[in-house]
Amino acid sequence: MIEVRLFATLRKDRGKVMQLPASEFSDGVSILEHFAIPREEVAIFLINGFHSKPEDPVKDGDILAIFPPVGGG
């Protein structure tokens, strides 16, 4: 399974943490499509805690964390 964590405004109507079958997704782009998240709404895309691109491959056991543009402090 692939764990997908959504944050901030991306959670609206989608949820916080979802498990997806790894066999159905080859990369982050396919996961964004699954959740109907427009590419331009994604500012930080983490795979297992490291900054990645949606084009990067995903595999069973990965944890994805996806953030819209947010801010710092």
Binding site: I44, V70, G71
Partner: peptide
Amino acid sequence: SVTGQGLKTYGTAVLVNI
């Protein structure tokens, strides 16, 4: 998007999850 929307909506607190 950070100064226009992000910080307004969640404040600096949004950093916790990031």
